[in-house]
């Protein structure tokens, strides 16, 4: 139920105490992972968690609003491109999108094997270096600018909490065009962060990709905040290669430009 991991307040996280805040997404990444591990281990807590999540779903339902009608066709067109070929059924397929070749994958974008270029392997000092250097924020600034500090804190705690997973690897590299990026890669999840990124330009956005087999799957667009981005990528397969490219606003289905950074595990 509790974790004695380093936390901003050096206070153990009590999962039961934070369950309601967790259900409202009002916890940081570290607290979330502590609560979710506790839920997985405790059926009684899981039952309560379920009831609270159903409650927040009713809150969500209470503000239902009609979405832009055109979006429906867009979404259905995208899934039609990803769907398994007709006539084939995959009743046990864990992730339908992984069953097909992505014909939109940019051939130049597929990471060459042994896909290690630009990659620093995990070294014991590296996490401290990234946290202290790349994401450095003096404590005085934390007081002056609590919002920015909270984001940095969240970035750090997400990296730290990912690093505690067995087999986690830290990879980092320079971003073409400016800035540095770091990611912690684990079996089912990766935490990606970058700092000092330049504005991608009008009508353009940074988009994060993970490699799945021989194609790249979008992990969403990255909103730039003070030159900084962070994202958590979850997948049913090990996440061992991440990349970022600059894409038209809203993102692309497959990369349309060369990556500005590729981070690959060993």
């Amino acid at each position: 139920m509790t974790s004695h991991a380093n936390h901003p307040d050096d206070e153990p996280v009590n999962a039961h105490d934070l369950l309601a805040a967790w259900a409202l997404d009002a916890v940081d990444d570290h607290e979330r992972s502590v609560v979710e591990r506790a839920i997985a281990a405790d059926p009684e807590l899981a039952l309560e968690a379920r009831g609270l999540r159903e409650t927040t779903a009713l809150l969500a339902g209470s503000v239902a609003a009609a979405p832009p009608p055109a979006l429906r066709a867009d979404v259905l067109a995208i899934i039609a491109r990803e769907a398994p070929r007709s006539g084939e059924s995959h009743p046990t397929a864990p992730l339908p999108s992984h069953e097909v070749e992505d014909t939109n994958a940019h051939p130049a974008f597929v990471t060459p094997k042994p896909r290690r270029h630009g990659v620093a392997r995990w070294q014991s000092f590296a996490l401290a270096a990234v946290v202290a250097g790349a994401l450095a924020v003096p404590t005085t600034l934390a007081i002056q600018n609590d919002q920015r500090a909270t984001q940095v804190e969240q970035q750090m705690s997400a990296l730290e909490s990912a690093m505690r997973q067995p087999g986690a690897q830290l990879v980092q590299g320079d971003v073409a065009g400016g800035g540095i990026a770091a990611a912690v890669l684990t079996d089912g999840e990766a935490v990606f962060t970058a700092s000092d990124l330049p504005d991608p330009g009008d009508g353009l956005t940074y988009q994060l990709w993970r490699q799945d087999g021989d194609h790249m799957v979008s992990a969403g667009t990255l909103a730039l905040n003070d030159g900084r981005v962070s994202a958590t990528v979850s997948a049913e397969v090990p996440v061992d290669v991440l990349a970022v490219s600059i894409e038209p606003e809203g993102g692309s289905d497959a990369p349309t430009t060369d990556p500005v950074i590729v981070l690959a595990g060993i």
Binding site: A57, A60, G61, V63, A64, A65, A66, P67, L71, R72, V75, L76, I79, A80, A83, P84, S89, H90, P91, A93, P96, E99
Partner: peptide, 20 residues
């Protein structure tokens, strides 16, 4: 299981809540 027609119904049922 890859049933796109079923997913279209999921979209119709859930998109107002998600969008809102």
């Amino acid at each position: 299981d890859g049933d796109q027609a079923a997913f279209a119904q999921v979209y119709d049922a859930a998109s107002p809540m998600v969008y809102g």
